[in-house]
Design a protein around this nucleic acid. Structure first.
Length: 816
DNA sequence: GACCTGCTGCGGCCTG
């Protein structure tokens, strides 16, 4: 018989003392319990789970001569991590179980290796959620995956909040059906709701009950702020932070090792890369750029440079948030608001990646409010006020995809699959009606698509087993597995050959021949578009624009917003205990003089008359999504009482309403306008909610398999994809009102784009607090940025007649 | 007291 703990001996042989959390994990695993391991850093986490698993597996299946089936899966959210992980896991496996094999399977896996795996899977497989789903589409998936006893999900905090995480939940439910004794472990960074994250991963009904292990590694965290040289004159608005060019350059020059410079968006990364080069041309070749639109080869080159420590600085977006642990990173700078406490800690963790070294993050504010926010962010991070991440609630598009996946992967009977799906956390409240709807939708495309065979994806045979009868459908399904939907973009290529990366079609469409733009850190001249690629050459001129990519809009988190308000309170009380507050003091004092400083106990409402008309400013500090919803709602309610047209402007701290006509402030003063009754109805009416929902629906149509994005190498253009998803949206609205994918689109708009729950609680807070109404004579420091960033967005209450006109026109068009 | 925003991630065929 083998010793009880080869894993521990393996560690001991290397002189490694196990951490307390590693022992906790091993105990849990040996008892056959699932769990979640939360720890801040590196290899300790990986080995804790891996050695425990190996011990348990070797107990059950002592190494012998014969090959083992696939016993363990290791899921990572990134291909690059899969490669690193495989490397890390290999050594212990070879030492402890020489006849076991380990492999990696992602989209990168070479054809030869893939074919080999198809004949026989290795004992341990490192893969992604998407590749796991693909494995579930294989006819004999039960044979191939039925012997899996362990699953580890790395970086679970990255997946839990997204449909990718839901897809992983469904796949895990499937594996548990194959093997009820499956043991699942998650590895997670800091999260505000770890207990819940564990339940989402392990399933609510997990037996024996899962264990949450908190790895306590004393990692010192240092957060400080780069304060502008003349803070009293620092700009009140703006997000680029160009004025911090010299201070940032000085910081980089002073640092011993590599500095990571994080920006929030890709265009800003391009701009900052240029700013650094402009200040220090001699740094060419020593600094680099990294973001999600750059060519993969370029990115890999940069990552290599980071590992080797050969680069002085890298300007990056969240593309470097995850992934490889870059030892030589000395300093991390964050330009502009980090938006959330968890993000701050994540980014700080990129530095000092060695035992005993502190993680240090330096915040670089781009306007005066962000100086205050920096102090608030530090306090919140030190107090561990971390944001929660919630699993999406029963997204039916993901379910529809999964139903087809399982129909392909050996088939299912409805009762069984219903029970199985309900064990996944996201679908724990799924009703039989909803499930049956999804089934029918897969069977014949719902009410409206019955005439189109392409949407008759599954069929029930005489034994009641659902399967996919058509090979073409099967192929297209396998090609569209996954929940990541990206906008169509074009490759950027040199005329002479060589790919630089991708830019969205929209930006390219605005360029004319000869226009110059910065991309991938180079100044390029646009030549022509040909076969879905934009051709460029190096520009000879020296001025260009910077492409902007359209992405989703990050909002300030509740935790960080509250922390900023508390910081304002301190200032309102005349105390300036932080260097940041000192720096912002002139602005705060001006705010106090012209208006009032907002606090957690009050709601500051400012009104101003100008040539433009009447302005109303409210500062709830609830993030831009909530502010947009609230502003639209208020405009709508004000205009309902008296027809009026408002312009709206929002940022993360507050919002502005402007109208040419004066309006009655009484409903604001008496807070009647913040009533939460009928909130849902009013919000939907106040926004162009159907357009928002239609945009959402594009993603849903792709995930649910209604829209096929084209074969690899010949993608369809954005316009084609938009047109087809728009068509489905219209068809469903007209002929299939009960289509649950439509309501899902509306729900997603409400929960994700408007953060309806947060909106409601913000309104309740406003009603509870003392409302301070100030008549401004000049724009205050807090209102000015809103005035500056004014959206063009307008909300009109139409006269009844025009509305009638439009309804009649629509009716005509629809009946044509 | 003028003032540039908009992230990340995966996967895949046809062919004899």
């Amino acid at each position: 018989m083998r010793s009880t703990s080869p894993g521990r001996e393996w560690m001991a042989a290397r002189g490694w003392q196990p951490f307390a959390f590693q022992r906790d994990v091993w105990r849990g695993v040996s008892e056959g319990r699932s769990g979640l391991l939360h720890a801040t850093t590196g290899a300790g986490k990986t080995y804790a789970v891996w050695l425990g698993m190996l011990d348990a597996l070797l107990q059950r299946h002592p190494p012998g001569r014969s090959a083992e089936p696939l016993r363990a899966l290791w899921l990572t959210p990134m291909r690059a991590l899969a490669a690193d992980t495989t490397r890390a896991l290999t050594q212990p496996l070879q030492d402890l179980a020489p006849n076991w094999t380990i492999g990696q399977r992602t989209g990168d896996t070479a054809a030869g290796e893939r074919a080999k795996q198809d004949r026989r899977f290795p004992t341990v497989l490192v893969t992604t959620p998407e590749s796991l789903s693909l494995m579930l589409t294989r006819e004999n998936s039960r044979d191939e995956l039925g012997a899996v006893e362990f699953v580890v999900v790395d970086e679970w905090h990255e997946l839990i909040g997204s449909k990718r995480g839901v897809q992983a939940q469904l796949a895990l439910a499937r594996l548990r059906r194959f093997n009820p004794g499956l043991v699942t472990w998650g590895l997670s960074a800091t999260l505000g709701n770890l207990e819940e994250a564990m339940k989402v991963l392990c399933g609510e009904a997990a037996q024996p009950s899962p264990v949450l292990v908190r790895g306590k590694i004393d990692k010192q965290l240092v957060i400080d702020t780069l304060i502008p040289p003349d803070p009293g004159k620092y700009s009140w608005a703006g997000h680029l932070g160009k004025r911090m060019q010299e201070p940032v350059v000085d910081e980089i020059a002073r640092a011993e090792g590599t500095t990571l410079v994080f920006t929030n968006v890709r265009s800003q990364a391009e701009i900052w890369y240029q700013l650094l080069l402009e200040a220090r041309p001699e740094w060419a070749g020593q600094i680099a750029l990294h973001h999600g639109s750059l060519d993969r080869a370029t990115r890999e080159w940069v990552e290599l440079g980071l590992k080797d420590g050969t680069l002085r600085a890298v300007v990056a977006t969240s593309s470097l948030d995850l992934g490889v642990d870059f030892l030589p990173v000395e300093r991390v700078l964050q330009i502009g608001s980090a938006k959330g406490v968890a993000r701050i800690m994540q980014r700080a963790g990129r530095s000092g990646h060695a035992p005993g070294r502190a993680s240090r993050l330096t915040l670089v504010p781009t306007n005066t409010m962000e100086i205050i926010e920096a102090a608030a962010a530090r306090c919140a991070a030190y107090e561990g006020r971390i944001e929660r991440r919630e699993s999406p609630a029963k997204p039916l598009d993901v379910l529809v995809q999964h139903v087809v996946t399982i129909a392909l992967g050996g088939g299912f009977t409805s009762d069984e699959l219903f029970d199985e799906v309900r064990t996944a956390w996201a679908y724990r409240t799924l009703t039989r009606e909803e499930f049956d709807w999804a089934l029918t939708f897969c069977e014949r495309g719902g009410e409206s698509l019955a005439a189109y065979p392409d949407y008759h994806r599954i069929r029930r045979n005489d034994e009641g087993v659902w399967h996919v009868p058509d090979r073409g459908i099967a192929r297209r399904h396998r090609m569209s597995v996954g929940t990541i939907v990206s906008d169509a973009s074009m490759q950027v290529k040199y005329l002479s050959g060589g790919t630089l990366g991708t830019i969205e079609e929209g930006f390219i469409a605005r360029l004319r021949k000869g226009d110059c733009f910065y991309f991938a850190g180079k100044l390029l001249e646009f030549v022509r578009v040909q076969e879905m690629a934009a051709y460029v050459r190096r520009a000879t001129r020296n001025k260009g624009t910077v492409p902007t990519w359209s992405g989703s809009k990050m909002a300030l988190s509740t935790e960080l917003g509250d922390a900023v308000l508390e910081m304002m309170q301190t200032a309102a009380a005349g105390r300036y205990p932080h260097p940041e507050l000192q720096a912002a003091r002139p602005m705060l004092e001006t705010q106090a003089r012209l208006s009032r400083i907002p606090t957690p106990l009050t709601v500051l409402v400012e009104s101003l008359r100008s040539r433009e008309g009447q302005h109303l400013y409210i500062h709830p500090f609830a993030g831009r999504h909530v502010h947009l919803g609230l502003a639209s709602l208020l405009a709508w309610r004000l205009a309902r009482d008296r027809p009026n047209t408002f312009s709206i402007s929002v940022n993360d701290y507050g919002f502005e309403l402007v109208s040419a006509e004066p309006f009655d402030l009484a409903p604001v003063r008496d807070k009647g306008i913040f009533a939460t009754g009928d909130l849902l109805h009013d919000v939907l009416d106040s926004l162009n909610s159907s357009e928002l929902a239609q945009r959402r629906f594009r993603e849903i149509a792709r995930v649910a398999g209604l829209v096929f994005a084209g074969y690899p190498g010949q993608p369809k253009s954005m316009r084609q994809l938009q047109a087809s998803s728009g068509l489905f949206y219209e068809v469903f609205r007209k002929y299939d009102r009960g289509n649950l994918l439509l309501s899902q689109a509306e729900q997603e708009v409400l929960s994700q784009e408007l953060e309806i729950l947060r909106l409601r609680s913000t309104m309740e807070r406003i009603r509870e607090r003392e409302l301070v109404l100030v008549e401004l004579r000049h724009p205050s420091p807090m209102s000015l940025p809103l005035m500056v960033e004014r959206f063009r967005e307008k909300l009109t209450t139409e006269q009844l007649s025009t509305r009638l006109d439009r309804i009649l026109r629509d009716m005509e068009r629809d009946t044509r």
